[in-house]
Amino acid sequence: MKGRNHGNFTNPCLTMHQPWASLLVHGIKRIEGRSWPAPIRGRLWIHAASKVPDEETIKAMEEFYREIYAVNGITNLKFPQHYPVSRLIGCVEVVGCLRREELAAWDKMPEGVRLEALTDFCWLCERPQRLIIPFEMRGYQGVYNLQKKIYDAAVRGLSAIECPFPVKFPLPDTRDPFSLKPGSLDFCHSESKVVELDESSSLRSAIAGARAAATQFSKKDQNTIEKQGKSYLIRTNELEASPFKEVETSASSSDRISAANSPTLDNNEQTQSSLINGSSSGGEPFKIEQRRRPIVSSKLFAAAVRGLKPS
């Protein structure tokens, strides 16, 4: 992966709330929604935040994916049996990023995938892999580098996932991993076939339920963060002519891409950056709440997976 990413990323990781984190790692969730464009391409590690999901949230999100998969004739979805928290749980490959309206109008994509276009920016994810032994660790806001000792242990314990409906996102330029980006698709919005829903359909109800589930991560700290006047630069030299562009997000001035050398926030200060992603959004990294359970050290973890055959 080194050399494919733009920015100071070696083993990029993203902290997300459950159940969205496990749904992504298990290949059910194919679009990671954000209020800012994806700064990387290639492997992205997924870390589950400390908040334990309630049964209603899990039920709403499982129903959402059950309905959008049914649009493409998939009716036998198998959801994760557990939704672990405060754990590194696996990884996906980020192959592109599009705006919501672009993905929704992309006729090369199955209808079910296009129905996941519910946020400003849609990160396109393929090739999910889960960790056989989820690794307990701290998470941060935005995209941050995974510690090398954690990466060295975790990479040996990955297991490929058999996706219920594998999707391949074609690159406009196969030589450029950043070619699938906002504005890269040649289409006329007025002539594009955007998915239309029957107002009385169970599909619309499922989408409404998924939106409602995400509202529990309210932007309660939006005013406080905005008063601080903090803004961060997101590298988007593939999107604009200038090498850097300041991107405003729905939760604050913007999300910081790297969490290195930054103070932590309490759990009560976590905010949500998008509608159907379960991720945290804010200007600073947050400290994942450590629960009272045995902590697996990196040495013990490495020893546990040493005998496992890499995927």
Rank of each mutant, 00 (worst) to 15 (best):
L300H: 10
G142A: 03
P39Q: 04
N268I: 03
L115R: 01
T174G: 00
P84Y: 05
V143R: 15
E136W: 07
K309E: 11
I225N: 12
Q216N: 08
N72V: 07
H47N: 01
P53V: 08
P164G: 09
V194C: 12
F79K: 14
T224W: 14
Y83E: 01
T271C: 13
E191V: 08
K181A: 07
G33I: 01
W45Y: 12
L131S: 02
A160F: 01
E136D: 07
Y144S: 01
C97S: 07
Q270I: 12
E111C: 06
I74D: 14
K309M: 08
I150D: 08
L185I: 03
L185Y: 04
S218T: 04
I257D: 00
E238A: 07
P166W: 02
S86G: 06
L308N: 10
P310W: 14
E101H: 02
P12F: 15
A48Q: 11
R175S: 08
F217R: 15
V85T: 09
Y65E: 10
S184D: 09
A302L: 10
P177L: 03
P84W: 02
L197E: 11
R156Q: 07
S218D: 10
I46W: 15
I288V: 11
A154N: 06
C13G: 05
S202N: 14
I74A: 08
P294K: 07
A214W: 09
N267V: 10
V194K: 11
K227P: 02
R66M: 07
V296I: 06
D186I: 04
S231E: 01
V94Y: 13
I295H: 11
R34C: 00
I68P: 15
V167L: 02
L158K: 11
S274R: 03
T224F: 14
G278Q: 11
E191Y: 11
R114W: 15
P285L: 02
E199N: 12
P80L: 13
C13F: 06
G142Y: 01
R30K: 13
I40S: 09
V71G: 09
C122L: 02
R256S: 02
Q228H: 14
V143T: 12
P243A: 00
M16E: 04
E111A: 13
H189F: 15
L158P: 14
S262L: 05
S190D: 00
Y144Q: 01
L118G: 09
F244N: 05
A214D: 10
H6V: 12
A302H: 09
S311V: 11
F79S: 03
P53A: 05
A210G: 15
Y140P: 12
A117V: 05
F217D: 06
I132D: 09
V305W: 04
R100C: 10
E191M: 11
L203I: 12
V167I: 10
R43C: 08
I225T: 08
L115W: 10
Q270V: 12
S298W: 10
Q222E: 05
A60L: 05
A206V: 04
R293D: 04
N261I: 01
H82Y: 09
G283K: 00
E63H: 15
N145C: 04
S253G: 14
P110F: 09
L44Q: 10
R235K: 14
Q222P: 00
R100F: 04
P177F: 05
D255G: 15
G90N: 05
H47V: 02
L44K: 11
E32A: 11
S281T: 06
F121N: 03
G73Q: 12
K181G: 04
K149Y: 12
Q81T: 14
A105W: 03
L44S: 05
G139S: 04
W20V: 03
